[in-house]
C-alpha cells in the first residue's frame, strides 16, 4: 500500500531474538502514516505483541530502528525514552489497571509522565488535567464512576478506563494489544468502535493487535498480517481474501477461519 504522507511511525529492519533463543521478529519493516488505524493480525506466537512492545521498548529490539515523528526511539537514553513514551498510549488485553486505585486515579496515571513525583504522590494534578479526565470519562460514559475502585468495574468498563488512561497521555500513536480478547462479542464491537472513533476525532494513528479477523476488517483501514515474525500481508480490508488468509494462518487453519468469519458476521449482525 503506497503512502504519500511522511510516516508517523517508521519501523525498519526490526529483529527481536529473546534471551531464550526464540526468534520472534525477523527483519520487519512497517510505516504508519499519521491518523491511520491499522490492524495487526496473525496466528498466536507470530510476534504481534513483541512488535508493538518493541515500539515503546517495553521489549528491547535486537536490531533495527524505530522512528516516531522523526525521533529515533531505539537509541534514546532512559530519560529521553520516558519522555518519548508519553506520546505512545498503550491499551492492554487484561486492561492492566491498578486494581486498588480508583477510576479517576487510574485515568490520571496517564499524566504521570508530565507530573513531578511529589505532586503525583499527593495526587496534586493540574486542574485542566482533572477536567480533561472528566471530559474523557464522560465521553466513554463513565463520569459517574470516577470514584469507584477499578476492581469494582466490569470488563468492558475497565477497558474504557484503559482507553481513557491512554488518551490522557495526549499520544500521537496508540499501541493496542488485543483489546477485545477478554470481552463478549457486543462489548468487543463497542470497544473497537470507540477506539476507532476516538482516533478519528483526535487524528491518532493506532496499531491494533487482534485475533478477530471480522472485527479487523470492519474497523481498520489497513490490515497487516504477521506470520512467524515476518510480514506476509499488507493491504486494505477488502483485499484480505481467502488466499491472503492462507498466507497468514496457513493451509490447515484456513477453512476454519473462513467458517469462523462467516458465523462471526452473522452474530455481529444479529447483535447490532
Amino acid at each position: 500500500m503506497p503512502e504519500n504522507a511522511t510516516p508517523l511511525l517508521d519501523i525498519a529492519g526490526l529483529t527481536k531474538r529473546y534471551p531464550t533463543g526464540d526468534l520472534a521478529l525477523t527483519d520487519v519493516s512497517l510505516r504508519v502514516p499519521p491518523g491511520q488505524v491499522m490492524a495487526l493480525i496473525g496466528p498466536s506466537g507470530a510476534g504481534k505483541s513483541t512488535l508493538i512492545r518493541c515500539v515503546n521498548r517495553l521489549v528491547e529490539p535486537s536490531s533495527g530502528t524505530v522512528v516516531l515523528a522523526g525521533e529515533a526511539l531505539t537509541t534514546l537514553s532512559r530519560g529521553a525514552l520516558r519522555r518519548a513514551r508519553r506520546r505512545m498510549g498503550m491499551i492492554f488485553q487484561e486492561y492492566a489497571l491498578v486494581e486498588r486505585l480508583t477510576v479517576m486515579e487510574n485515568v490520571l496515571s496517564g499524566r504521570l509522565g508530565y507530573t513531578g513525583f511529589w505532586a503525583s504522590w499527593f495526587r496534586r494534578f493540574p486542574r485542566r488535567d482533572v477536567e480533561e479526565a472528566f471530559r474523557l470519562l464522560d465521553r466513554v460514559g463513565l463520569a459517574h464512576m470516577a470514584d469507584k475502585r477499578a476492581d469494582a468495574l466490569s470488563g468492558g468498563q475497565r477497558q474504557r478506563v484503559g482507553i481513557v488512561r491512554a488518551l490522557m497521555q495526549d499520544p500521537a500513536l496508540l499501541l493496542v494489544d488485543e483489546p477485545t480478547a477478554s470481552l463478549d462479542p457486543k462489548t468487543s464491537r463497542q470497544i473497537m468502535r470507540l477506539i476507532v472513533e476516538l482516533c478519528e476525532e483526535r487524528g491518532l494513528a493506532a496499531i491494533i493487535n487482534i485475533h478477530d479477523v471480522a472485527l479487523a476488517q470492519e474497523f481498520a483501514r489497513r490490515i497487516v498480517g504477521l506470520r512467524a515474525g515476518r510480514i506476509v500481508f499488507d493491504g486494505g480490508p477488502d483485499t484480505l481474501d481467502a488466499a491472503a488468509l492462507t498466507s497468514i494462518y496457513g493451509e490447515e487453519d484456513w477453512s476454519r477461519t473462513i467458517r469462523r468469519l462467516e458465523t462471526e458476521e452473522n452474530v455481529a449482525e444479529t447483535v447490532a
Binding site: 477536567e131 471530559r135 464522560d138 460514559g141 468492558g156 474504557r160 463497542q190 470497544i191 468502535r193 470507540l194
Partner: peptide, 13 residues
C-alpha cells in the same frame, strides 16, 4: 447508554 455516544449533554467537566 451506548459506549460510543459523544458524552452526556450538559455534563460540566
Amino acid at each position: 447508554m451506548s459506549a460510543t455516544n459523544a458524552g452526556t449533554a450538559g455534563f460540566d467537566a
